[in-house]
């Protein structure tokens, strides 16, 4: 039995013939579409390493069945930079050393991107910490992560203001 699923991934519409309904979005990306940026740290929604943006919101892709997301718009870490130009969130993570081993980093960055879009934390470090608490980092890069999110928020805010003006 094959299930045809259509997904727009990083701006490209793809029709995928799924041979198995059990495939999660995470495993679809990683094992079948060679988009290995999103990571599998727990596979149970407990670490956030698999965070991607689906229909504009950050979710754990390990707990999402691909087949159920027919028609969805997916953004992964591979689609964040514009060619060689890093996204401000990516730049800020490097500048503030918001990473060590790098394994949780794609999830942290997509989560940060989603958080900034949600607009719930603003420039309040405590709100950023709470809102980023769904992304575990065993290396302990939290300080740099929080600083990076705050700086990226500022940069993006300034960019938006410029566009409005």
């Amino acid at each position: 039995m094959a299930f045809s699923t259509t997904l727009t991934i990083n701006g490209v519409k793809r029709t995928i013939a799924l041979d198995d309904p059990r495939v999660t979005l995470l495993d679809l990306l990683r094992e079948r579409l060679n988009l290995t940026g999103a990571k599998k740290g727990c596979d149970r929604g407990q670490c956030g390493a698999c965070t991607i943006i689906v229909d504009g919101r950050r979710i754990n892709s390990c707990l999402a069945l691909a087949i159920s997301h027919d028609g969805a718009d997916v953004l992964t870490i591979e689609g964040l930079a514009q060619g060689d130009r890093l996204h401000p969130v990516q730049e800020a993570f490097i500048a503030h050393d918001g990473l060590q081993c790098g394994f949780c980093t794609p999830g942290q960055i997509m989560s940060a991107f989603g958080l900034i879009q949600e607009g719930q934390a603003g420039d309040d470090p405590e709100r950023v910490r709470e809102a980023m608490s769904g992304n575990l980092c065993r290396c302990g890069a939290y300080r740099g992560i929080t600083e990076a999110v705050l700086e990226a928020h500022k940069t993006l805010d300034a960019l938006n203001r410029k566009e409005v003006a």
Binding site: R30, L35, T36, G37, A38, K39, K40, T76, I77, E78, L80, A81, L86, Q90, F93, I94, A95, D97, L99, G102, F103, T105, P106, I109
Partner: peptide, 17 residues
């Protein structure tokens, strides 16, 4: 800054899995 920083923030760093 990390030499491997760009690879890691773009998802291009390839881990074993």
């Amino acid at each position: 800054t990390r030499r491997d920083g760009v690879l890691k923030v773009t998802g291009a760093a390839k881990y074993a899995a």
